[in-house]
Simulated scan of single mutants.
Amino acid sequence: MRKLCLLVISLLSIASWQVQAQQRPQLSQYMLNNFLMNPALSGIEDYADIRVSNRRQWVGIDGAPTTYYVTAHAPINKGAASNKFHKALAHHGVGAVVHTDKTGPLRRTGISGTYAYHLPLTNTINASAGVAAGLIRNSINTSELQFYRDTPDPLAGGGNINKNMFDLSLGLWVYSKNFSVGIAGAQLLQDPASFQSVEIEEAALDLQRHYFVTGSYRFAALYKVDLIPSVMVKMANPSPTMVDFNLRALYDERFWVGASYRHKDALVGMVGFYVSPVLDIGYSYDASISNLNRVNSGTHEVVIGFKLLNDRRIICPQWVW
C-alpha cells in the first residue's frame, strides 16, 4: 500500500506545469483544511472542526485579492472499531462553508451546506463521498471602475450590480492514518453569472468548472518527527492547470513547519502550532516568483482552528494533518 500511495503522489506531481488565475480563491494552507475544496471530508474527525481564515494577497497592490472564510463540519453517529481487528462503523458528516473574496470592485461571496458518507474499506483504509450545495453571489461596485473610452460600457450604469448563482460540488476521498488521495469538482453546474445593467448591453461572467486532485503521505522520519509531502493539481478550463508541491515536518504532533512551491507563481513558508485540544493556529507567507514580485511585498494568510465537542481531547487531527 505504501508503494501505491507514493506512486499516486508521483503521478499527480507531473500532471501539469502552467499557472494562470482561476475563479476560486488561492489558498496556501489548504492541506490543513481540504474540506474547503472537497465536501467528502465532512465529519472526517471525531469532533466538530471550525476554522476561520484571512488571506491578504499581493500586499502593496491596490485592489489585490482579500479572502475570508469560515468552515465548520462534524461527524454524525461515528463509532470506533471494537478492536484493531475489526473495521470501524460507517458514519455520516455534515458541514457548512462561508467565504468572501474581494478583488478590486469585484466581490464574490458563497455559502454552502455539505454532506458526506464515510465507509471503512478495511481495518485501516476508509473512503468517503460528499456533496456541497449552496449559492454564489457575484457583485460589482461600478463606482470603483474607471473607463478610458467614449463607447458606452454595460457596467457603467453606476451603483452595485449583483447576480446569485446555484453552486454544486462533488468529491471523493480515500484515507488512512498515513495517506490520503482525493478528487473533487466545484461549480459543476457552470451557471452563467450575468451582471445585468440598466443599459442596453449585458456583461456576463460564466462560472468555470474547477477540479482538484490531491495526494499526501505521512511517514516517520526521525524520533517524534513526521514528514508529510503532498501535491494538489487544480484544473479549470479554459485556464491552464495549476500545481502545488508541499512538504511539512510535524514535531511531536504539536508543532509544524512547511514550504510549498506553486509553479511559476510563488514560494510559500508555513508554520503552525496545535495549542490545545481546543485551539490551533497556522500562518503562511507567499513570496511571488512571477513578475508581480516587483510590485508587491508578499501574501499573508492566517488560519485559526477550533475543536469543539472534542471528548477525547485530541490535539493533533488524526485524519487531516
Rank of each mutant, 00 (worst) to 15 (best):
residue 80 A to I: 02
residue 86 H to F: 13
residue 82 S to A: 12
residue 84 K to G: 15
residue 127 A to Y: 06
residue 120 P to R: 02
residue 100 T to V: 08
residue 109 T to W: 00
residue 123 N to F: 02
residue 119 L to N: 14
residue 74 A to N: 10
residue 132 A to H: 01
residue 131 V to P: 04
residue 102 K to L: 11
residue 112 S to W: 00
residue 108 R to P: 00
residue 118 H to W: 03
residue 83 N to V: 01
residue 85 F to E: 15
residue 78 K to M: 12
residue 75 P to F: 07
residue 80 A to S: 15
residue 87 K to R: 14
residue 83 N to P: 05
residue 81 A to C: 04
residue 125 I to P: 03
residue 131 V to R: 05
residue 78 K to Q: 13
residue 116 A to K: 04
residue 119 L to P: 02
residue 87 K to G: 04
residue 86 H to S: 13
residue 133 A to K: 00
residue 130 G to T: 04
residue 120 P to A: 09
residue 115 Y to L: 05
residue 79 G to M: 11
residue 75 P to M: 05
residue 88 A to C: 03
residue 120 P to T: 03
residue 74 A to P: 05
residue 113 G to M: 09
residue 103 T to I: 07
residue 118 H to L: 08
residue 103 T to V: 11
residue 81 A to W: 10
residue 108 R to E: 07
residue 91 H to N: 14
residue 130 G to W: 07
residue 100 T to G: 13
residue 123 N to Y: 03
residue 95 G to D: 11
residue 117 Y to I: 11
residue 104 G to M: 08
residue 82 S to V: 12
residue 90 A to I: 07
residue 117 Y to E: 11
residue 127 A to C: 01
residue 75 P to N: 05
residue 92 H to K: 13
residue 76 I to Y: 08
residue 88 A to W: 01
residue 132 A to P: 06
residue 82 S to R: 09
residue 108 R to S: 09
residue 120 P to E: 12
residue 78 K to D: 08
residue 86 H to A: 10
residue 74 A to E: 08
residue 122 T to F: 04
